[in-house]
Design a protein around this nucleic acid. Structure first.
Lengths: 345, 345
DNA sequence: GTGAAAGCGCTAACAC
DNA sequence: GTGTTAGCGCTTTCAC
């Protein structure tokens, strides 16, 4: 009750030595007589002995713990993904340490430093700071790291990312196939690489079909607007769109929550979705199927992403390969009710 | 690069002793000549020295880390709340350790044991296992703990919970005020105490107005259905309701996601919300305002809950009071579009 | 089979 | 002001 019992207490109570207690507690295959083993186990139970982690770690120098750093755990995409990582690593006997950077490179640095101090076995990160710096820093500490979420496939990192470009092409193709060729692109900003990739897919696909892009149909918000609330971003974006004298037939936007904001604002202005305007976005969060009208979207499978990052990190830890890998997660088109499909003849 | 540098290395390089290095690195107000201090700091930087956490902890015996245990981080209510805790504790110089129990008491036990081993400073938990056992276990290790989410106000724990009963009364009063007196109660199950409290509020308020309760209007699902997916629960509940020859004027249900399932299913059967049936629920998650029709709901403020739990735990840690406290978070009625309001004359 | 003893990196009495 | 040293709880040679 008062003080925590230590290996010494167990040794004393069982009338043996700390060496043997250590051997028994760690279930090594070192030979210990059954009788002594029983006595020690019994003493340990009686004293409610639990090995002090810090004593162990200090000696062993390795910590079976994985650091996970994401921008914000309250974002459903990340919380879903982190949840996958939690069970995956638990099964492999690793503890997880989840940190939110709150989109602040400084906070991120602090977390990374703390993780290094704890001597975690590896780090999985959706970085907000400069990946180059992070990779260098971590690898100088011999910490395996895998990045996800952003596409660094042209650099030399361990990286699992999503094929934003292809995803965007598929989305726009769907629109065009259904005779929706007057297509707007709405985004809070084009700062993130993933968004630029989506935009590129949009442009290239339109080009491919020799469809002229109306320059009014690229709508971005002022860059000084805080990126905090995607829903509100969607609202602002839609209001801006409505100011035009004519409207597009379809809208491509960068994520589901922004799409919700756009659609709700449009509907309030008596614009019917998808009858008047079709909408397609990217993510497929859980709520997208509950939304009215149910969202047509390009699925970015968080489960698969989680599984792949975990697998990659574990490989790094176990095989100690220095080689870096990139895995690209492929999109899946989820057709629901926000894109007006051409009537089948 | 190769090995991590230790306090010894710094002492050697700076030509001083490990004691002084320790003193300088810990920024104690112990007097050290400016000149030596500079030399040490410089050496530390050159070697990229970071104190080994385990060495420190072993010596100090305290760990400025808080354990947070929730059923599932992927649930938006919890991820939101955990996010609040993260920033709150970060500001106080504590690290957080977030664990999901996945509604499994066994997993929860394991997490708690690990947290105890790490000698965290305290634990915040939304328990799935027996709180009595948990409290006893943790307090025998001198670990302050505060429970949230469930109402243990009649027991002697540190506890911040939500006034489910009052919340339910307010919800039902709103319905009655608007001449909606034929009210159904739909719930996945009545196993959790919080749900029984909501049910009790429903019954008592109806009683108070001497409104007869149609026994068909209490709908629960078979207890062997897994509680995993509230949305699907809502779907099942609504299907069951529709089987009746007549329909209620209003529905009370236990959380927003279940309400989404109910409403979408009703709408598919050409029942108009709120014209034909009004719906009110509990939570006010972020999506409730995005949903169509926007949900009328009793807000269970996760931010306030997070702030209160953090405050309570910090008080326990710092004041070392043994006294237990209970804080009740009060509900807030959020009127949106799912309850048909009586026309004002 | 078992245990004594060294030492992981650090802090804090205690000298000087 | 500065350094020596004991020891936190544990694992692991090494000797018996």
């Amino acid at each position: 009750m008062g003080k925590k019992s230590t290996i010494k207490d167990v040794a004393k109570l069982s009338g043996s030595s700390i060496t043997t207690v250590s051997r028994v507690m760690n279930k090594t295959d070192y030979p210990v007589s059954q009788e002594l083993k029983d006595r020690i186990l019994q003493a340990a139970k009686a004293l409610d002995y639990k090995p002090n982690l810090f004593g162990q770690m200090l000696k062993r120098g390795v910590n079976k713990e994985i650091g996970i750093v994401v921008p914000n755990i309250s974002n459903p995409y990340y919380s879903q993904l982190v949840s996958v990582l939690e069970v995956e690593f638990m099964e492999q006997g690793y503890t997880t340490n989840i940190c939110s950077s709150f989109n602040d490179a400084e906070v991120e640095r602090t977390h990374l430093e703390q993780l290094a101090q704890r001597q975690v076995s590896g780090v999985i990160i959706s970085a907000v700071g400069d990946p180059e710096e992070i990779a260098e820093e971590l690898e100088s500490e011999n910490l395996p790291v895998v990045f996800f979420d952003q596409d660094y496939s042209d650099s030399d990192y361990n990286n699992v990312s999503f094929n934003f470009y292809k995803s965007s092409c598929i989305a726009v193709e769907l629109l065009i196939e259904n005779d929706l060729t007057n297509i707007a692109f709405l985004t809070p900003s084009l700062r993130r690489k993933s968004r630029r990739q989506i935009y590129q897919g949009y442009k290239d696909t339109l080009d491919k079909h020799t469809i002229e892009v109306n320059p009014n149909w690229l709508i971005q918000l002022d860059k000084d607007k805080r990126e905090a609330d995607d829903y509100n971003m969607g609202h602002l974006l839609a209001k801006q769109l409505i100011k035009n004298e004519s409207l597009p037939e379809a809208i491509v936007t960068v994520n589901d929550v922004t799409a919700f904001g756009i659609i709700n604002t449009l509907v309030k202005s008596n614009i019917k979705i998808p009858e008047d305007i079709s909408v397609i976005s990217f993510d497929d969060i859980a709520f997208s199927k509950m939304f009215t009208p149910a969202l047509t979207t390009m699925k970015q499978p968080s489960t698969e992403t989680g599984l792949e990052t975990a697998k990659m990190l574990l490989a790094q830890i176990n095989d100690e390969t220095i080689e870096h890998h990139t895995v690209m997660i492929e999109p899946e088109l989820i057709i629901r009710d926000t894109v007006k499909l051409k009537a089948v003849k």
